[in-house]
Design a binder for these strands. Structure first.
Length: 260
DNA sequence: ATGACGCACTTGGTGCGA
């Protein structure tokens, strides 16, 4: 079974690109982030027309997550237990479902903005709460494949950004963020894609400005973490999808999972 | 190397992104 994750930077602006990509990528389950719309604005019909069920969680023009699946979509979960709020708002940053034998979570981890912004503290709280929820999911069913996929907004290693000097005191590379990410390994999670896409210089995001993409100046921040019960047979980053007019600033990240 | 920010919003300047 093939599972992908993609921060699309607006589902409505990019719907033709998304369905076109799905139609030629043999993807069974697509986790989507940054749909930037409410549920009633989400272009669900376009997914259904090409054979995918789709579930969306969005409340306004910010954030928004979805899962599209052609191998079933059951036990839908909107947000995770204990998910923190930001300024009293529970933001649409997590949606989960059982798809073809794998529990898939589409996650949009808070950006953090700057190290002294309340959003940074929120990001760390959000990651801690996700860790707690993940521990309880594994306690309940350790044998069931579980994938935490999406835009983690963390570059785990120095080589996951093109120049650490540029990121000196920025979010995405700070020690607390990296520790919060690495701590998932304590639960048995591993990066499904990295073994198949070794660095350095391998990224999933390139800023729209300053010719970052053609200069190959990006960041590796979109990850697929899988539980130890998840048997991964392949992984890939579709860098080509970042090319051309109307591209998202993120590329799709893909893994193949052997399911019984 | 596959190109010089893009999206959404009480639509035109602002918030957000990483």
């Amino acid at each position: 079974m093939r599972i992908a994750t993609w921060n699309v930077n607006s589902a409505r602006a990019r719907i033709d690109r998304i369905t076109s990509w799905l139609s030629r990528s043999d993807v069974d389950v697509l986790a989507i982030q940054e749909t930037k719309c409410r549920d009633d604005q989400f272009p669900a019909l376009a997914f259904e027309e090409i054979g995918y069920e789709v579930a969306h969680h969005g409340t306004n023009q910010w954030n928004g997550v979805a899962i599209a699946s052609r191998v079933g979509l059951s036990r839908l979960q909107i947000g995770f237990p204990g998910q923190p709020a930001f300024r009293d708002q529970l933001e649409p940053r997590a949606i989960g479902a059982d798809c073809g034998g794998v529990t898939v979570w589409s996650l949009y981890v808070p950006n953090g903005r700057t190290l002294d912004d309340p959003h940074y503290e929120y990001k760390l709280r959000w990651l801690d709460a996700l860790w707690d929820a993940s521990a309880s999911w594994l306690d309940a069913s350790a044998d069931r494949p579980l994938a935490l996929v999406g835009d983690w907004n963390i570059a785990p290693l120095d080589e996951d950004v093109w120049d650490m000097a540029v990121f000196g005191n920025s979010t995405h590379v700070s020690d607390p963020e990296r520790k919060a990410y690495q701590r998932f390994a304590d639960l048995g999670f591993s990066d499904a894609v990295r073994p198949f896409t070794p660095g350095p210089g391998v990224y999933t995001y390139w800023d729209y400005t300053q010719l970052r993409f053609p200069r190959r100046e990006g960041m590796r921040i979109d990850h697929m973490l899988v539980s130890s019960a998840t048997h991964v047979t392949g992984g890939r980053i579709d860098r080509d999808e970042r090319k051309g007019k109307g591209a998202s600033d993120h590329a799709p990240v893909i893994m193949d999972v052997a399911v019984q």
